[in-house]
Nucleic acid binder design. Structure first.
Lengths: 346, 346
DNA sequence: TGTTAACACGCAAACGTTTTCGTTAAGAAT
DNA sequence: ATTCTTAACGAAAACGTTTGCGTGTTAACA
């Protein structure tokens, strides 16, 4: 087992000083052609690579980005990571991932674990519990200590940092307007509880679309799912809530759901109630993931361009890291949504 | 912006030496009760946290695990990551993720990027291109340099390292035997090209099941999909290949597919050809992901327990990292598959 | 021959820790 | 009064780099 070779070892072997070896490898003009070649040859032979940790300590930069997300088994978040990794890697950065699992304390612990020198900056999406608690001290602290943050999707408006969001309001509005254009008059909304910022915005988009087409919104048509039904193995609860919605309002002819799962479950319930899609009732979901394309019928969705969000987040963070002196003001980038029409709409 | 405080700064403020501060914080008996309290109070006030990078350099351990996977937007891999992160975090480790995107060179580059001190060990699943090339020098080098590797799912048998695999052979066999038990006599196989180790093993399981029930295997019933059709937006090619299979063999009454996507596409084609599922034709797929549960009809699958694979991989790696002196022999852990029956089978 | 400039290299500090090994002073023991 | 012990702390090395600066050697020049 030939261990990693260090400058010191090379220096000893070649009877020169450590500094000389370092300079020779970096092609410093201070070093003679002779020794430079000798050192480089030796280094190549022994496959010398500078130790990242030592470099990080010296430069006070790790070239590593910390990502904190609520959940990784989720098409949206994994696409964001892919986007981040793509541009990070291109610029010589690594990404280190922490999962909050929607829990406030895990979010805090993960951030503290990484903030002590392991990374140069954060890209994160807030956990639901944090939004509920409204305790943001870990974000403020990180920023105060000079560790920049980029928030995406689930952002906190009070926190001064770069943000990348999707236009949830407009996206939802576009979707509902599409339903209206296709003849829907009684459109239900399946959404989350209000403390999830994106859910709230999408709800507002839904209301706005109705309003601008003089359709009266009805509280009975809005179903707010509590998060206990979000888990993959709690589908029955979700479905029975939806079933109640349909039974209480048998004349629903359109459904807008704030995520794929809600939309698919709703379609399932509709089929069970012998409604045909899209003739009797049409569906549009938010978030264009794996499920929508392969559903039967395939689901029309509002695509968030998750990978693009990741790419943009990484660009913002890296730019800030590499132009620290300039202290630019924080920006909020809005990624356009795109309506993808499939067979769940006419 | 109060920057991170260091031992040196505390030492200066309190007019003691750096060493004293360090000892005081670690409750060394060398330090008087008096100064110990003073130092600890000061440290708490300024929220002192030891710098991870400095510790890594000193201890020659980073407490970080490198994960290299072919793709992150994939239910299986993200579940594995979740498992790894779970036990890693519990044991005080971080995880840093590199994506090979199924490319050999990206796999190599990512590993080199991490191997220079950034991590203590790898958990990885080989890219397809690497399996095709059969060039494993980056694995051997890493191991030779004392950086342990744990391979999962797509493993290389020649490489001496811990491995976590699923029993692809038995899993496939169980699935096919289930089809046979439910009355299928003409069972097609939709699989990958042979260089993907898991695809090969699953194919062998299929053949073995047929053989042990005296059913003759027919080459015409085995469809090997080339990887160019694996991308999400190349579904048409995949579907037309499957359609040909069905048209050439109209009496197929069972299909075993080595992944979810193939199975779902096959079901879609079957529906298009006016076959009813599961009466006319039954389906079982490998890998229990998001799609299977939500397909119509829901797809029976062979579950790989991805998260458990991740957990086991992390346990193996961390155990080896923390018992380096003992030089235990390498083990291969087999995670049992589980047949999950849904509505695509009778 | 003496001065100077360029060249080639070594030294040492710095990044932030931990830890071993002194060192000092006070008090106890002889 | 002298030696010994012990408590409490400081100094310095080490982890692996990079880099500014000092220095010795050589060759060129006056």
């Amino acid at each position: 087992m030939k261990q990693k070779v260090t400058l010191k070892q090379i220096a000893n072997e070649l009877d020169v000083s450590i500094g000389t070896v370092s300079k020779a490898l970096r092609n410093s003009k201070e070093i003679s052609e002779d020794t430079r070649q000798k050192v480089q040859a030796f280094a190549k032979l022994y496959n010398y690579r500078p130790n990242n940790i030592a470099l990080s300590l010296k430069n006070r930069k790790t070239k590593t980005i910390g990502i904190i997300i609520p959940e990784i088994v989720h098409n949206f978040f994994s696409k964001v990571i892919r986007g981040i990794e793509l541009v990070a890697n291109k610029k010589g950065y690594n990404v280190i991932v922490g999962l909050s699992n929607e829990s406030f304390s895990k979010e805090v612990i993960n951030m503290e674990m990484l903030a002590n020198g392991s990374i140069d900056g954060f890209i994160l999406s807030t956990s639901k519990q944090t939004m509920l608690n409204q305790d943001y001290h870990h974000f403020t602290e990180s920023i105060n200590q000079g560790m920049p943050i980029v928030m995406f999707d689930r952002v906190i408006s009070e926190i001064p940092c770069d943000k990348v969001i999707v236009d949830d309001f407009e996206g939802a509005k576009k979707a509902v307007e599409q339903l209206i254009a296709k003849g829907c008059g009684k459109i239900a909304l399946i959404t989350t509880k209000d403390y999830v910022s994106v859910g709230k915005l999408r709800t507002q988009g839904y209301l706005s679309a109705l309003d601008s087409h003089k359709i009266e919104a009805a509280a009975s048509l809005i179903l707010k799912i509590s998060e206990e039904y979000d888990s993959e193995d709690q589908l029955e609860g979700l479905e029975s809530e939806i079933e109640n919605l349909f039974k209480d309002n048998p004349d629903i002819d359109g459904v807008f759901a704030v995520n794929e799962l809600y939309a698919l479950s709703a379609m399932k319930v509709a089929r069970k109630l012998n409604k045909t899609i899209p003739e009797d009732i049409q569906f549009i979901g938010f978030t264009d993931g794996m499920l929508a394309k392969h559903a039967t019928p395939s689901l029309s969705t509002v695509s968030q361009h998750a990978q693009q969000m990741g790419e943009k987040s990484a660009e913002l963070l890296i730019h800030r890291l590499e132009h620290e002196e300039e202290e630019e003001s924080y920006q909020t980038v809005i990624i356009e949504t795109e309506l993808i029409l499939r067979n769940s709409t006419q």
